[in-house]
Computed example of a mutant assay.
Amino acid sequence: MFLQPVYFPYDSRWKIPAREKCIQYWNDFKLPEHIREHSRLVALIAENIYHAANKTLHVPVEAVVASALLHDIGKFYCIEHGGFHNQLGASLVMQLTGNPAIAQGVMHHVFWPGEIDVDKFFLPLVLIYSDKRVKHDTIVSLETRFQDLFSRYGLNERMNGLITKSWEQAVAIQNSFNQNFGIDLNARTFDCGRMV
C-alpha cells in the first residue's frame, strides 16, 4: 500500500541542479548511455508540457527538468543489485540536491499514489506521464509504450493488473493535462515541438 503524498508549496530557497550538474551526477553513478538518452527525452517532454500549459505553474521549469534528468539515477544500481530504482533514486536525489520536490518526482515516477491534481502536483505527474511516453530511447504514444510493457512484463495476472492500473493512471493524467491546460498531448510529437 502506498502512502498518500503530501502537498507542500514549492520553496524558492531549494536548490535546483543545472543540466550540467545532472550530467555530472550521471557520471558519478555510471549511468549507461541508453538510460541517459531515455532521461534526456523524458526531460524534453516534461519541459515541452510545462511551456505548453496555458496557466502559471507553481514550480520552476528547472526543477521539472532536473527531476526528469535524474528520475532513473538509481536504475543501473538496481539492475545490478536489486531494489526499487525509484526509492533509491529519490534518496540519492534528496541527498545530492536537498530539494524535496525533485526527490518527490523521482520517488513517484513509477506510480502516483494520490489524487490527480495537475495544479497541486504538476512535477510528479508530468514526470510520470513523460516517462510513459518514452520507450527506451524513442518517443512513442502511450498505447505503444504500454503494449511493450505488457509484452515484456505481463507474465502473470498480478503483473497484468499492475500494468493495467498504471495504464489507466497515465491516461487519466493525460486527460487532466489536456483539460486543465488546453492542449492535446496526443497531437504532439515532442521531439520537434510541432503538432503532428
Rank of each mutant, 00 (worst) to 15 (best):
P113A: 10
S91W: 07
F111V: 12
I16P: 00
G182V: 13
I102W: 00
I35N: 02
I163Q: 04
V59H: 06
M107V: 03
C78D: 10
E115A: 15
Q87P: 01
F177L: 11
G193Q: 12
L125V: 14
D131R: 05
F121Q: 01
S130W: 02
P124I: 05
T164D: 01
R152Q: 15
H34W: 14
S151R: 15
V61Q: 15
H136Y: 08
D72H: 10
L123P: 03
G161M: 04
T164L: 10
Q24P: 00
H58M: 12
N180H: 13
V126M: 06
E168Q: 14
F111H: 12
P124Y: 04
I163G: 08
Q87N: 12
A63F: 00
I173S: 04
P9I: 05
E115Y: 09
E143T: 13
L155N: 15
Y10T: 08
V65R: 02
R188S: 03
L155Q: 15
N86R: 01
A172D: 11
V61P: 04
T144W: 03
P9G: 04
G74I: 02
E157L: 14
L41W: 03
F29N: 05
S39G: 06
L96Y: 01
P60W: 06
L125F: 09
V42D: 00
G89M: 01
L88E: 07
C22F: 03
G98T: 07
N27T: 13
E143P: 00
F121I: 13
D117Q: 12
P17Y: 03
N27H: 09
L92W: 09
L41K: 05
D11L: 03
R188C: 05
N156A: 13
P124H: 06
A170Y: 02
H85N: 06
Y129W: 14
Q104E: 13
R13L: 10
I116S: 09
N48V: 02
T56G: 02
L123Y: 06
P32T: 09
Q104Y: 02
D117V: 14
A103V: 09
A68K: 00
T189G: 12
V196L: 11
L70M: 07
D137N: 08
D148G: 06
W112S: 04
E80I: 01
G161N: 14
G114I: 07
T164Q: 13
T144N: 03
L162W: 10
H108T: 09
N186P: 00
Q174C: 07
R188F: 07
S67Y: 02
K132Q: 13
Y10W: 14
L70F: 03
H109P: 10
I102T: 07
H34C: 06
Y153T: 08
I116Q: 05
E80N: 11
